[in-house]
Design a protein around this nucleic acid. Sequence first.
DNA 1: ATCCGGATAGTTTTT
DNA 2: CTATCCGGAT
Length: 659
Amino acid sequence: MLSKLNAPQREAAKYLDGPCLVLAGAGSGKTRVITHKIAHLVITCGMEPRNIAAITFTNKAAKEMQERVAQLMQGHSIKALTVCTFHALGVRIVRQEAKLVGLKPQFSILDSSDIMQIIAEISGGADKATLKGIQWAISGWKNALIPPQEAEKLASDEITAAAAKLYPAYEKTLRAYQAVDFDDLIRLPVEIFENHPEALERWQNKLRYLLVDEYQDTNRAQYKLLRLLAGVRGAFTAVGDDDQAIYAWRGADVENLNLLQSDYPKLKVIKLEQNYRSTNRILTAANTLIANNTKLFEKTLWSEHGMGDPIRVVMQRSPEAEADWVAARISAHRFEFKTHYRDYAILYRGNHQARLIEQALRNHKISYVISGGQSFFDRPEIKDITCYLRLLLNSDDDLAFIRAITTPKRGIGAATLEALGNYAGARHISLFAAAHEEGVAQHMSSRHLESVREFCAFINRIEYRANREPAGQVIHDMIRAIGYETWLFENCDTREAETKWSNVTDFSGWISRKGEEDGKTLIETAQTIALISMLDKEDDDFDGVQLATLHASKGLEWPHVFLIGVEEGLLPHQSSIDNDQIEEERRLMYVGVTRAQRSLTITACEKRKAAGEVRTVEASRFIDELGEGSLHRPDRNAPASREDAQARLAALREMLGRS
DNA sequence: ATCCGGATAGTTTTT
DNA sequence: CTATCCGGAT
């Protein structure tokens, strides 16, 4: 079973005598260790899959893990195995134990735009930046398990003071809507387990072995949850890499690595240093770079892939020249080495850098894909539909009620909703419930009340069907009944409406399929969508150069990587220089460098526009920190090398051939 | 509802 | 400086 692992990997997969921390360097096969450990637990140790949970941070990682376990354990049913994100596990816990925290099992999960809306309402019209700051502060407190009373003491500036003041009202509003935010999905399980030992025991008994991926990204609340679930037995394996901790700014606490050691003195620490991804030249540079950080655990990556080519460091005059150079180089390189566009990635510090690159790639007729961007579920047309689903699940969800009842327009306007809202507020009930009461008739015209009640009756009818009939049929009928398609084409220009409508049909088709696969009703299917960020319709076979921020590149790899804008002020970013956060920036650089399998090209500009004026900028200190021995710095003024000349000729030929 | 002008910020982002 | 966002005015 474990024969395909190297020695430390095998040790990590087999070790079951207590808590285990696997320090898995970049490209060292951490997913392999996790999947093999699961297989080992089930096949060799006879453990039930239902008692094992593997926890990841992203849906993508969860999905990959699931596929790889399935592949590894063909012939074993792993249906009951838990492979999900922290938040998905949180949802399961809170849904099952909902009444312990005063929620109904079908509570709504609000996304960040819903939350902005709530904060805007309870703060009584602050500007957008302030709203964001407040949301940020409250989220931070929740992730650090700081209750409202304590938050007040911690408030240091105007915004955090405002946030602390609004925190209780914010919580109250969420509860009134029978809703939770993402942070609650971690915080509430912790609260449940701390206050209800019997619930904790139930879950400890169910999840007897835990595997945590990307452990360095955990925040306080997540660590607490892990510790509660693992209990005194400490039956868990945490896999992570302190050198790839790049999310401190959103609450991830590398200190959790230290805590693991102090909380579990018997912690077994296993290092994975053999890399299966990159050439030794790249690894040496990465090792040399990261040695500049003060470190908890020393690691030295090595591989059997030979020395490889030196890292190419190229200076350009301007960001425009840089973008053009990279595009030209990829074009030539692909032609010369008969590679595919998908073998290349261009990585950068900030999203704005993608613009020039996109332009240059278009000029060179190079196809590309940008990772990140707006998630499918954030699109307005999809939110319109999901609000109907939220309302079907939870009629107390006033945000969903308002959006659904006004989209498409059905003659219910602000005045009617305000009257309904006032009545509901006075009686401490939801808008939906208020519409059903007799008393509300005195606050609005019968014509308006009639429309509201008609809408509610419609929702009730759909809800009845959503609990019984196949998901696909009900959602299809619902979308048709509300006249969404017609409304789209009346309110957008044709092109836009077509795109939006196609997104809606994609969505409804996806719900259909999902419902069919799991043999579930619309109600049951709808419960699972809040946490899914993308429809997995990423075409793996699309041949395009990958554009990604360094953050988004973590966990991915490409044969040829271009790291652009490697300048003081950008990478490391100026604000990180100012705030003494160079080490995190260095880890970001480290992540970028270790994405490359065969070749790495680093570019920097001599001049860059900042705040309007063109400034002379310096190459990043991180370039020097890679070690001169790993680098090749072609002199811009020297005659082009034979290789370069050939490449250029090849590119030229290709362009001529195409046009 | 829609358009225009002024103000404002211009890291990283998943769930 | 410039893109975006918000608010005010039509």
